[in-house]
């Protein structure tokens, strides 16, 4: 691969300093673990005149329980998150999702914030410069057409982070810091359905932390489908969280990744509260997943398979959790 382009490295000691530096250097990028950003820079997908390394910002590494919620700094590594006893015991979907990202040597560097902000992926985008040049590029990088849907006026690159669907199912919210101060928003509102602008984060805003409620009675799980079991992005990934009330469904949340330009919290499942866990309930989950996701030709595995297998994963996880919650 090509060498990294020349840039100035800035190493702030606080989140406020990081945001200030981001404002002072418009052509800059935040760097966390670097496992996605640095290879993307070397492939010419990302350019920056300054890199703001967040590794020295102590507040981003916080991981603690406050008021029946787990606060996780955006700089906590996926390895730390996956091994944390509270996460393993109370938020299994999060532990499973964090442990399923790439390989162990990535997870010791890769962070929660980096995985939530992960660049969207597409087989026409994540390629070498000569390859992309040969197809006159795509609209996500210097071209004017989406190669996946040539008549479409938008980019369909797929969001492929594993942790986001788990956190959507676990009803997480995020804290963001900008020049005007900090704001909180639900994780669902953190994303936009656009392969080129998939975050609702302004250019000078920094994802600081995630807050996950620790609510009794919920069980959760995450599972992904991948070409290579040992280390790969999800072709599709599903997280489910379930609260059982005796023989009835108390509450249910399902979220998917890899099958839209944003991680999708599946809507229209509220009516299942108070209903029995039967074929009709699972049929509604399947219908709503098919309605709420739109896998496109962004990977080497074809669309119809990913479209059919996503609800299969969800139903399998739900059956398993239903038994576990008995």
């Amino acid at each position: 691969m090509a060498a990294l382009s020349d840039f100035r490295l800035l190493r702030p000691a606080s989140a406020a300093d990081a945001v200030r530096l981001r404002g002072e250097h418009p052509a800059s990028r935040f760097l966390a673990g670097g496992t996605d950003l640095l290879p993307n820079m070397r492939r010419g997908l990302v350019t920056a005149e300054a890199i703001i390394d967040l590794g020295g910002v102590a507040e981003l590494a916080e991981l603690r329980v406050v008021d029946a919620a787990l606060h996780v700094g955006a700089g906590v590594t996926l390895a730390t998150l996956a091994a944390d006893p509270v996460v393993q015991a109370r938020l299994p979907a999060l532990a499973q999702a964090a442990a399923s990202v790439a390989g162990p040597t990535h997870r010791t560097a890769a962070t929660l914030g980096g995985n939530l902000c992960l660049d969207t992926r597409c087989m026409y985008y994540n390629q070498s410069e000569p390859w992309r040049h040969a197809i006159q590029n795509c609209m996500k990088i210097a071209g004017d057409t989406c190669r996946v849907a040539t008549k479409s006026d938008r980019c369909w690159a797929a969001f492929s982070g594993d942790v986001a669907p788990a956190l959507l199912a676990l009803d997480a919210e995020v804290q963001v810091l900008g020049p005007q101060g900090s704001r909180r928003l639900s994780l669902a509102d953190f994303y936009r359905d656009d392969g080129m602008a998939w975050l609702s984060l302004a250019a000078d805003e920094l994802l600081v932390s995630v807050r996950i409620p620790l609510t009794d009675g919920w069980v959760s799980a995450y599972e992904k489908l991948q070409v290579r079991g040992a280390i790969d992005f999800p072709l599709t990934g599903v997280a489910v969280a379930l609260r059982r009330e005796g023989d009835l469904i108390g509450d249910l949340r399902v979220a998917c990744t890899g099958v839209s330009s944003r991680p999708e919290l599946i809507g229209g499942l509220e009516s299942l509260a108070g209903k029995p866990f039967d074929d009709a309930a699972l049929a509604l989950v399947e219908k709503q997943i098919k309605r709420g996701t739109q896998p496109m030709e962004t990977t080497v595995i074809n669309v119809s398979y990913r479209r059919r297998v996503t609800p299969v994963l969800a139903k399998r996880l739900l059956r398993r959790l239903w038994q576990a919650a008995a």
Binding site: G33, G34, T35, P39, I51, D53, A79, P104, T108
Partner: peptide
């Protein structure tokens, strides 16, 4: 792969100054 404070890390995805 090298060890950074005992943890395995990919040296091709890590800035030296980091």
């Amino acid at each position: 792969t090298v060890l950074v404070d005992g943890q395995p890390r990919l040296s091709c995805c890590t800035l030296a100054h980091s």
